[in-house]
Design a protein around this nucleic acid. Structure first.
Lengths: 104, 104
DNA sequence: CGTGTAAGGAATTCTGACACG
DNA sequence: CGTGTAAGGAATTCTGACACG
């Protein structure tokens, strides 16, 4: 029951292409990483690699920045979402343990 | 009724990453392009950009080459498929013209 | 035919820093 | 805080060619 990583999550896009795709400067993209808003992978020699999901995330960040939301606030929003997801997952796990289908 | 290009078809991957993904050398990848088996786009300054579909296509080509199929034969296979697709499309169009739903 | 390699040049990316505000 | 820019270096990619077979 493995989850094969969708194309959307494969980290294969260089920062230059991400810049074209999002309209953001490379400076901004690196800065948002510094602020832990985005998490690219690195190639062997340290080149950043992004996924399509990262590109979407960056466009979302760009929108929020335009509205005057600070990186700190954006970061906190992200943390909240992560906590919620962790909680949801835990609840699902417990429900499953008590009422889930039995293994044959 | 526009078809938005899926992530699978977006040309965003550099030849170096494609090489890692497929296990093929850059030399081979460029050669298959020379033989019209694969069609990357180009960035502003001439850098090749591939899609995930291209990556799949390359892995298919690699398999065929291992079986001893020549690039020429692979190319002919591709041409046949393209003709078939064109034919299918035409037939669908004609069927639709005669029996398709009427416009309101 | 299919692929490796050395060659030289141009463009990319990286980091750390100074600047402004 | 958020972003621009100049700086120097390292790695990437490109093309055309020679090599082997």
């Amino acid at each position: 029951m493995e989850k094969e990583p969708s194309y959307k999550d494969k980290k294969v896009i260089s920062i230059g292409v991400v810049s074209e795709l999002t309209g953001l400067t490379e400076r901004k993209i690196r800065y948002y990483e510094e602020k832990n808003l985005i998490f690219p992978e690195r190639s062997n020699r340290g080149y950043r690699k992004y996924s399509f999901r990262d590109v979407e995330r960056l466009m979302d960040i760009a929108d929020q920045r335009e509205e005057g939301v600070t990186t700190k606030e954006i970061k906190h929003e992200l943390s909240k979402k992560e906590k919620n997801e962790a909680k949801q997952k835990m609840i699902r796990g417990q429900l499953n343990a008590r009422f889930g289908v039995q293994k044959k």
